[in-house]
Structure formats: C-alpha cells, structure tokens
Design a protein around this nucleic acid. Structure first.
Lengths: 172, 172
DNA sequence: CGCATTCACTTAACATGTTAAGTATTTCCG
DNA sequence: CGGAAATACTTAACATGTTAAGTGAATGCG
C-alpha cells in the first residue's frame, strides 16, 4: 500500500519491503486455502447442526463407502494423519457411530466399521450435503468444476514424487 | 434416493453402502485439501529449518508487504482468524520478530509491524521459498498455474455472497 | 528358539482452526 | 453528560494438524 522509495535512514519508520517476494495474496497455497475455505463455509453449518465436524464427516463417508477398513487404510482414504484419526475414532466410538474389533490374524490391526447409528446419522446429513454440493456445482458450472478438479489432481500428481529424496539431497 | 431395497436383517454384517453419495475421494473439498497439502509439503521443511510455521510465515510476509497494520487488517491479509492471530502475534512478539504499539487515536487498536530481526529472518528464508515456488511453477507449468489460480479465484468469488443470509434462512 | 527390526497403532506435546464469551474502549444518541 | 450498543481485540474451550516418542504385536534371521 505504501510505495515509498528506499529509505536508508529507517530508524523511526517501521521496516518493510526489504525482502521482495511475489505478491503475497496470489501465492498458490493462499489461493488453495481461500478456495477451500469458501467451499467449506458452505458445508460447516449443516454438519454442525448434526454435531459433526468436517473430519468426522469425512471418516463416516469413507466408512460408508468401504464396509470396513483398517485404521491405516482409513487414514489414507479420509486423508487424515494417524494421530488425528486415533483421537477422532475414539470419540466416534464413544458416540456409538462406529465399531471396531481387533483383527484375529494380526492383533496389531483393528478393523473399523460404521455402526447402525452411524448410518442413520449419515442418512440424515447426506441430503443437505448433496444439496449444497449441487448448488456449488450450479454456481460455478459443472464443466468448469470438472476442469478444476482435473487441474488439482495434476498438481498433486506432479508434486507427489518429491517427498522421498529428502534423505538424499539433505547435504546441508 | 436409496437404491438398496430395505434389509430388515442387517445384524451380522457390518452395515455399509447404505447412503449413496458422490465418490468420496472426488469431492471438491477433498481435491482442494489434497492439492494444498501437496504444495505445502514442499515448503514446510524449509520453514521448519528456520523455526517458522506456515502461519507465522504468512504473517511475516504480510507485514513485510504493508509496513504496519492493525490486527484486524492483518487477519484479513494473512487469512487467519482473530484468535489464531492473537496467539501467534504474542509468540512472534516474544521472539522479537514483530513490534506492536497501541494506536494513539484509538486505544483499542494496536499497530503491528515487522522488526529488524523479523526482516532479517525473512531475508534468510525468502530465497529457498522462492526457489521452491519456482520449481513448482516449472513442474506444473507457468501458464497452467495462472489458469488454476484464476479458477480458484472465481470459485471463491462465486461462493462469497452466500454467507450473510444464514440469519434469514435459519427458520429451523 | 531368541532377539533385533519392522509394523500398526496410540500418546504426548505443541500450534492452529473454530466458536463463544470476555474486556476495554469508543461511538451513538437521548 | 451518560448509558446502551458497537468495535477491536483477547481468552477460553474444544477439535484437529503436525511431529516425535511410546507400546505391543508380528517378522526376519542367525
């Protein structure tokens, strides 16, 4: 907002603009964050009415789609980290929305599944969720939405392979 | 909406697939989340080396760009909620990366600015940050990146006006 | 077999997201 | 002027993100 030329005697004035960078508000992470927040803002009230957070809803949806799953598999599907999932499963189990039983073959693993109550809750939320999604689709345009999601998928894909070589390039 | 005929005897098998919905992994919030996570995974190690979190970095960047700002304005710029910002500013101030002074005209407001140390820290992080951004741009394609960000902006815009009418439609 | 290693999770600790409530200041208005 | 209402934060409380460490069970292998 201030376009002042370099000021060599910046003793009184608070320092700024010393480190040139891209315009902050146009960075990719920011764009993604803002877009996602705009979308989630549409859903949160409906979920909240049913006492669900976004992540709890993700887990229920994932479970409804895959019968039963190990915790690790569920984490991958719902895109949650293990510790978050652990906590949430504990709470969902306490609310009787899910069930777990340790696998017979391997005592380390526990199979998680949605309970009858969980299904009932999902059924009561799904309509409004779908309605909201439909409204978003309509506003933004169905074709454009597909296009956007394709680009997002490509972005994810083209960054996916960078993660394993931290060990190698870590020569600092 | 449910395609399955009623099953009165679902006692043994874990219940599932009772609530048909869009394929979970292809929902828009999920796509946005995954894409953003893929991007942030590139940046986090570099920030971490300098003892900064993503949000702290956002605040420093915002401050470097606008000289000084009120807390509310900063929250809008860095896209953080007030409570988060309050906590982070407290910590950044304790680390002498920012400075604050209450405005003379209005004792409620406090002006926040980046400190000399903060500028130094920014200068030490900016190069790797820019390098990472450049690599992402190159991998994904500069033109495609612009296109993606335009779509994200449009999405945000077309959902922006929905927020004020919760009071009105809240007739439940 | 025995034991180090790996594996599947869980706990812990700290930082942020999210909503609600609290505090101090200012403004509005009779 | 004076008190209700609005404003600019801050605190509180709970849930999740993120990394590191812990725990118990399986595996690999000498």
């Amino acid at each position: 907002m201030v376009k002042r030329p370099a000021d060599p005697t910046n003793a009184s004035a608070p320092t700024a603009r010393h480190v040139p960078m891209r315009d902050f508000s146009r960075s990719l992470p920011m764009s993604l964050l803002r877009a996602r927040e705009a979308v989630m803002r549409q859903f949160r009230p409906a979920l909240r009415e049913h006492g669900l957070t976004e992540q709890q809803w993700r887990i229920l949806r994932a479970l409804a789609a895959i019968e039963a799953a190990e915790v690790t598999e569920l984490a991958r599907t719902a895109f949650l980290l293990g510790p978050s999932l652990s906590r949430i499963l504990r709470d969902l189990e306490a609310r009787n929305l899910i069930e777990r039983k340790t696998a017979k073959a391997d005592q380390r693993r526990s199979m998680v599944s949605i309970s009858k109550e969980g299904v009932k809750l999902m059924a009561s939320v799904a309509p409004s969720s779908e309605a909201i999604y439909a409204e978003i689709t309509q506003r933004f345009g169905a074709r454009k939405l597909v296009e956007l999601q394709e680009m997002l998928g490509e972005l994810e894909l083209c960054l996916a392979s960078t993660e394993a070589r931290e060990e190698i390039t870590d020569d600092a």
